[in-house]
Computed example of a mutant assay.
Amino acid sequence: MNDKPVTHETVEAELQRLIDNLRGADAATVEAETARLQAMAGQVQDAPGRERAFSRAAELPRLLAGPPVPASAEFARAQLLFDRAIKDQGPAEVRIPRLEQTIEQIGQLADQAPVREAGAIRRLNSPLVRLIEHLQSSTG
């Protein structure tokens, strides 16, 4: 048996392993592994770490299910814009203005989308902002 104390990081590592290994698993298996992960979280010594570990363990079913299928036309359009922007080729001085325009368009779509999807749509902009920063740093 492993004599190392269980920490929040231990539970997080096990959660990541389960996410990698349980894709497509049946509900009974996911339920059993969630219960096992929660039991592991209960062994974390410090209270804040234990609470975070319990919270993360409870997320296993949702994490395995993946993101919900977008229901709105705004979400579908934002994903299409995002995909095009990521796959876009060309020099940075051409790509950056196109990325900035896409970010603006995605923001407008988020404003028009149902409230339950607006945040998810806005989060599509984060990787685009990081891509702009990368392009700027690689050309400057």
Score class of each variant (00 low, 15 high):
P91E: 09
F54S: 11
I86F: 03
T34S: 13
G24R: 04
N21W: 03
A85F: 02
L81T: 01
I96L: 06
F75L: 05
A35G: 08
F54N: 10
V6I: 15
G42S: 10
P68W: 13
Q136I: 02
Q105L: 15
L109E: 10
A32W: 09
S137N: 07
Q16R: 11
A27K: 09
A85V: 02
S126V: 00
A118K: 07
G90Y: 08
D20K: 13
F54H: 08
F82D: 00
L109Q: 12
A13Y: 02
A41E: 09
A92N: 03
P68C: 08
R98Y: 13
A71E: 15
P68V: 13
E133Q: 05
A73W: 05
E9H: 07
V44P: 06
T102E: 05
G42D: 14
E59P: 02
I103T: 04
E100T: 14
I86Y: 01
Q101M: 06
D20P: 01
R23Q: 14
L80I: 00
S55H: 12
T7W: 06
S137Y: 02
A32D: 14
A58Y: 04
P114H: 08
G42N: 11
T102G: 11
R116E: 10
L37R: 11
L109K: 09
I96D: 05
L22W: 07
M40V: 07
D111N: 12
A32N: 11
A118I: 06
A113R: 02
R95K: 11
E93Y: 11
R62I: 09
P91K: 09
A58T: 10
G42Q: 08
A92P: 02
G49A: 12
V69F: 10
V69D: 10
P5M: 14
D88N: 03
Q43K: 15
P127S: 02
F54V: 08
P61R: 05
Q108S: 13
I103V: 12
L128W: 00
P127N: 01
A39H: 14
P67F: 14
R123W: 01
R17I: 08
Q101S: 11
T34A: 14
Q16S: 08
A32I: 10
E51L: 14
D20H: 06
G24I: 04
Q38N: 05
S126E: 01
R84Y: 01
M40K: 07
D26C: 06
V44M: 11
A57P: 01
P67Q: 13
V6Y: 12
V129T: 03
A53M: 06
T10L: 11
A32K: 15
Q108E: 13
R52F: 05
T34K: 12
A92G: 01
F82A: 01
T7R: 06
A113E: 03
I106V: 15
V44W: 07
V129C: 00
P48R: 15
L60T: 04
N2M: 13
L81N: 03
L131I: 00
E14T: 12
Q38V: 10
A13T: 08
I106E: 00
R95L: 14
L60C: 07
P68T: 13
Q16V: 03
N125D: 07
E59W: 06
E59N: 07
R62A: 15
N125C: 09
R62S: 15
G66Q: 10
